[in-house]
Each structure stands twice: as C-alpha cells, then as structure tokens.
Deep mutational scan, measured.
Amino acid sequence: NKFNKEMRNAYWEILLLPNLNEQQKRAFIRSLYDDPSQSANLLAEAKKLNDAQA
C-alpha cells in the first residue's frame, strides 16, 4: 500500500529531525496516523519547522 510506505518513511524522517522536541514529533506523528494521505505534506511541514528551529 502506497500510503503505508509513505507514512512509514515520513514517520522515521520526522523521528530523526534533530531540532524538533518530543512534543512536536508526537503531534506530527499523531497527524500522520489520523490522515496517512497527508504524509508528504506533514513531512514538509515538519522539515520546515525543523529548519526554523535550527
């Protein structure tokens, strides 16, 4: 399933972002589970926040 693969990839990438705190990571991951079809958008948002907090 395409969404499962995308979601899994986004999950691990979000977990490994160094500048997000645990609460932020949990919020993004919760959103991933709520709507896996938004994986790419959520990952992009997480990366943007990660860069902003660098």
Score class of each variant (00 low, 15 high):
30 R>Q: 03
44 A>V: 08
12 W>T: 06
48 K>I: 09
41 N>F: 15
43 L>R: 14
43 L>N: 04
6 E>K: 03
46 A>V: 03
18 P>F: 06
52 A>F: 12
34 D>Y: 12
48 K>Y: 10
2 K>V: 05
24 Q>Y: 06
19 N>Y: 12
28 F>S: 02
54 A>Y: 11
20 L>N: 00
54 A>N: 11
38 Q>D: 08
14 I>E: 00
6 E>T: 04
3 F>Q: 13
8 R>M: 14
5 K>Y: 03
1 N>I: 05
21 N>D: 09
17 L>V: 01
51 D>E: 15
15 L>P: 01
43 L>P: 01
24 Q>L: 07
45 E>R: 15
15 L>E: 02
21 N>Q: 10
44 A>G: 09
38 Q>W: 09
51 D>Y: 13
5 K>M: 01
25 K>E: 01
17 L>F: 08
41 N>H: 11
33 Y>D: 01
14 I>W: 00
3 F>E: 13
29 I>W: 10
46 A>S: 08
15 L>H: 09
42 L>F: 11
52 A>V: 08
34 D>F: 13
32 L>M: 04
52 A>P: 06
35 D>W: 09
4 N>Q: 06
42 L>I: 11
24 Q>M: 07
8 R>N: 04
12 W>Y: 09
2 K>N: 13
18 P>S: 08
14 I>R: 00
13 E>F: 15
20 L>G: 00
4 N>A: 03
44 A>R: 10
29 I>D: 00
36 P>H: 05
20 L>F: 02
45 E>N: 13
24 Q>S: 06
50 N>M: 02
54 A>P: 08
48 K>T: 10
10 A>Y: 02
8 R>S: 06
1 N>T: 04
15 L>Q: 09
36 P>G: 06
21 N>M: 14
30 R>P: 00
9 N>G: 05
25 K>A: 04
19 N>D: 07
43 L>G: 04
8 R>G: 02
45 E>A: 13
42 L>P: 02
40 A>W: 15
43 L>I: 05
40 A>L: 13
46 A>P: 00
23 Q>T: 10
53 Q>I: 13
26 R>I: 05
21 N>H: 10
2 K>A: 11
9 N>H: 14
20 L>R: 00
36 P>V: 04
51 D>Q: 15
19 N>E: 07
21 N>V: 08
32 L>W: 03
32 L>D: 00
40 A>V: 12
9 N>M: 14
23 Q>I: 08
10 A>V: 08
17 L>W: 03
27 A>N: 11
37 S>P: 04
50 N>Q: 05
47 K>S: 05
52 A>N: 06
47 K>Y: 12
39 S>K: 10
15 L>I: 08
46 A>T: 02
47 K>E: 03
20 L>Q: 00
1 N>D: 14
2 K>P: 04
45 E>T: 13
39 S>R: 13
43 L>W: 05
23 Q>P: 10
46 A>L: 02
5 K>W: 03
40 A>G: 06
10 A>N: 02
25 K>R: 14
37 S>V: 06
32 L>R: 00
33 Y>W: 08
54 A>D: 12
12 W>I: 04
28 F>E: 00
26 R>P: 00
3 F>N: 12
7 M>S: 04
41 N>K: 14
41 N>G: 09
42 L>K: 08
4 N>S: 04
39 S>T: 08
27 A>Y: 14
33 Y>T: 04
32 L>N: 01
43 L>V: 05
9 N>P: 01
20 L>P: 00
27 A>T: 15
11 Y>L: 09
35 D>N: 12
31 S>W: 11
5 K>E: 09
54 A>S: 09
23 Q>H: 09
29 I>P: 00
26 R>S: 03
4 N>T: 06
10 A>S: 05
28 F>P: 00
11 Y>W: 06
29 I>L: 06
15 L>T: 09
19 N>V: 06
53 Q>P: 07
31 S>I: 06
44 A>Y: 14
11 Y>E: 14
2 K>Y: 04
41 N>I: 13
47 K>P: 00
51 D>R: 15
39 S>L: 13
24 Q>T: 05
47 K>M: 05
48 K>Q: 12
13 E>W: 15
17 L>H: 12
4 N>P: 15
7 M>H: 03
50 N>P: 01
29 I>N: 01
54 A>H: 11
32 L>T: 01
5 K>L: 01
3 F>W: 09
22 E>T: 13
20 L>H: 00
45 E>G: 11
